[in-house]
Design a protein around this nucleic acid. Structure first.
Lengths: 342, 342
DNA sequence: TTGTATGCGTTATCAT
DNA sequence: ATGATAACGCATACAA
């Protein structure tokens, strides 16, 4: 029974057991070059034998790095958050970094100071910004001022300087609108996401492009301003259904809002999807659990954030990045909430 | 514009500016006794002026503590996870600790070794165990072996030695069953949670006690074994609805399963809640977003975990705990999924 | 390719 | 009540 009551092995112990100097051990730990294969093996053996694990505190102190990165988010969707965390953890685990999670309220500018205080306090080496925080240039500037590296997970705007990973929201929005069109819908309503989130505009553009490409006009009365949440989605859907010529299908910019539309339709006794088709965006858990199950779009959030974390860590290690920016593709998940209009 | 290009202030700088010794500053920072009030003030002033923040690395190295605690979970519900994180973060922020999140698979016993490796690697001082990990005595033993303090967030079993916070699931389950009874239901089905989670048994007991207290028998054919997730809930509901004498109401041990029951009923064209009343447990986001909106039970997860974290940190500071164990109350959230049977 | 000396910013030990 | 000094475990020049 290996009761770990013995004191932690240090780099000295390893050096002694391997019969080399402290510095050599340090070299193999940090994968520096200029170490003979045979000595490298000796050291590895000693590390194994002693179950040696370098002390983060000592490394941090000596190297003035913390090997910590922060994941910043301001997103009401818990499934989005956990998927992002999953990606970040995966990368951090593989790269030997620790992850600090940092929820924050993107709206209160006075709190950006508070946020920075926390980040400085924990001495993180870098930060991952997820939407809508990645839309905030001021925050990025402040981070730069504090010498905290950062990477953005953001919709593709095409004009970003720093590290970022993107997702082609516009294209996905266009595709799912085309799906509605292909089923024979021509009056398609759209419920916008929160006005402060740049993705909302991207998804609107996709919607518009799909219509235009098929020769349809964009009818502004079919477009309602939502805020990504269930309640706003329900309200907007009610507005649309109250129209003298209501749409036969609705594309909501989030699943939460799409659920709201579903409920609004149910409450009016509409047959779904026959009398109203609905599609969402996010592939949240409720998309699969509502009735009828929602057709929606899935972003590879975990992969995006994982990739972002690796980009960031590479930067921290001063490795030249392969690509300063990479783009991921969304995927349509077609379920039961769409049919041809009756 | 305070560009933080100047080097970080150290404890030396503070000592010099305050005109005291390094050790005295240390005392003030760590709230040790034996410091005159006036000198304490001087030091605080200097800290303020220099915007001094102690280095976690240096503190960790010198004191062989990391001021980090881990939040361990193995829970498929992202809303549960984020609520738990919220509570943990709140406490850690207030107490000056860092939080490392640690998802894990409770089923694979070989991975408990892997988990411990990660915890040792990050040198956490303690860990918070959430259900179902808090049901695993082996894990707790291993943590103790590694000298990692721990606190459990668990259902009330009444016979726990260590630190823990509990929630009275049984009582809440009884209450929501009583709610169904009060509406006139007598044939009430129950969908059990995952068999490995001790809460499942607690909630079953609450269900049984409510029936027994009103003079009803517990009909085993009305009890189905679920696994907390949507799919199992739907399957179990189908079994129940296939009965020659189907129940007029279903109490599912989770909202995910309750949603499954809702969908099963919708698919059969049942009128809800008229022909089938359904209640869940958790107050997950979908509870409010499905149709009809679910009546359910809300645990104060954030508060429980926050309290657990404070308990743990107190232990790490060797403060005598006020109570080694505290119990929280659940709350019923009544919505639209219950009516008298038609 | 390998080793030596020094310092990182704090806590802990022992004084005074 | 306060202070001097030695760890803590590692990285980083700089040598050899």
């Amino acid at each position: 029974m290996p009761k770990s009551s013995e004191l932690k092995a240090t780099i000295y112990d390893v050096a002694e057991l391997a019969g080399v100097s402290l510095k050599t051990v340090s070299r193999v730990i940090n994968k520096e070059p200029n170490v003979r294969g045979s000595t490298r093996d000796k050291v590895h053996k000693a590390i194994e034998q002693l179950q040696y694990q370098p002390s983060p505190s000592a490394r941090g102190l000596a190297g003035s790095k913390s090997f910590l990165i922060a994941l910043l988010y301001s997103n009401p969707s818990s499934s989005y958050v956990t998927r992002a965390q999953q990606g970040a953890l995966e990368a951090c685990g593989a790269e030997g970094f620790g992850l600090l999670i940092q929820p924050c309220d993107y709206q209160s500018p006075d709190r950006v100071g508070e946020l920075l205080h926390r980040l400085k306090e924990s001495r993180v080496d870098g930060a991952i910004l997820t939407p809508p925080l990645s839309d905030n240039p001021q925050l990025q500037q402040r981070l730069a001022d504090e010498n905290i590296a950062c990477v953005c997970v953001a919709p593709r705007t095409g004009e970003q300087g720093g590290l970022s990973v993107c997702c082609d929201d516009e294209r996905a929005a266009q595709q799912i609108t085309e799906h509605l069109l292909a089923q024979g819908h021509s009056r398609i309503g759209h419920i916008l996401g929160h006005p402060d989130h740049s993705v909302s505009q991207q998804r609107l553009r996709g919607y518009e492009r799909a219509l235009l490409a098929q020769g349809f006009e964009v009818d502004r009365s079919l477009i309602q301003q939502g805020r990504f949440d269930f309640v706003s989605g329900k309200q907007c859907a009610e507005e649309l259904l109250d129209l003298s010529q209501p749409p036969t299908a609705i594309f909501a910019s989030s699943d939460d809002m799409a659920c709201g539309a579903l409920v609004a339709a149910h409450e009016r006794g509409l047959k779904l999807p026959g009398q109203l088709s609905v599609v969402g965006f996010d592939d949240s858990p409720q998309a699969a659990q509502c009735w009828p199950a929602l057709s929606t779009v899935r972003q590879p959030i975990s992969e995006m954030v994982s990739s972002a974390a690796r980009l960031l860590i590479g930067e921290l290690r001063k490795q030249p990045p392969d690509d300063i920016q990479s783009t991921f593709q969304c995927q349509l998940h077609l379920r039961d909430s769409v049919s041809p209009p009756e």
